[in-house]
Amino acid sequence: MSGPRSLSTVLILGIPILWVVVFMLLPYGIIVTYSFWVKAYPTFKPAFQFGNYLTLVTDPQYVQVLLRTLKISALVSVLSLLLAYPFAWWLVFRCHNQSLKTWAYMAVIAPLWVSYLLRAYIWKTILGTEGILNSFLMSTGIISEPSSLFLYNQFAMVVTLTYIFIPFMVMPIYTALERIPANLSEASSDLGMAPWQTFLKVTLPLSTPGIAAGFTLTFCLSFGDFIAPFLVGGPDGNLIASVIQSQFGSALNWPLGSALSIVMLVIVLAIVSLSDRIEARANTGAH
């Protein structure tokens, strides 16, 4: 290998590798290390023990938060799927007006350009006691005084997170549906299948990679969210990421926070690899 060539190889490969090592592997390594340390107020001291992990498993408080986070993330994913799939299906198969199609798609994607914080905050103003929903219900006479039922609970969390993350469900499903050749539906119809049968036997199976990708994205993004719980969640809507934040912040228990982070990382990686497998299987067409 000649000199300049090897230099460019070093640069092309070296910079991303350096980036990954310094900004990914190193921080993860530090977190893993911390997770085995023990708390020694006001700081922590190095150790190698599994006490932090044991606390997570035995203390019902953490188990409960973890289960709640899983539940809310799953609800957000399912709700996003139920809303996004029909919408994407309509866009791909039923919307024949090109400019309407573009506008409808942009309407879903455009919120991504708005600050995340703003999008979460919007729901505070909609669901709050002084909010739009309460004003509307009072003006129509359905309720006589403002209700505080809408905000600071898991319902508010699911609604807000679904609103924020639904573009990540629409995009992959839209792409998957658009890749299905139109004549496959026609062939199915030609072979005697009614439209709903065609949907179940052709369209749905061929769009599973999109569903898997959308589910993974919305689930993992909800799973790691800590701003929505802070704004609309209240004590009932506390998620694991907010607990981690408080362990590193006010609770000053980095080892426990690190252990929680690692547990979360493992869960997310498990979901990503599962979804990869589903997508690969759908793409190669194997059973």
Binding site: N183, L184, E186, A187, D190, L191, L206, G285
Partner: peptide, 13 residues
């Protein structure tokens, strides 16, 4: 009636 489509339209899955 049945149709043979131009690019066959076989179900890939």
């Amino acid at each position: 009636v049945n149709m043979v489509f131009q690019d066959y339209a076989l179900f890939p899955h």
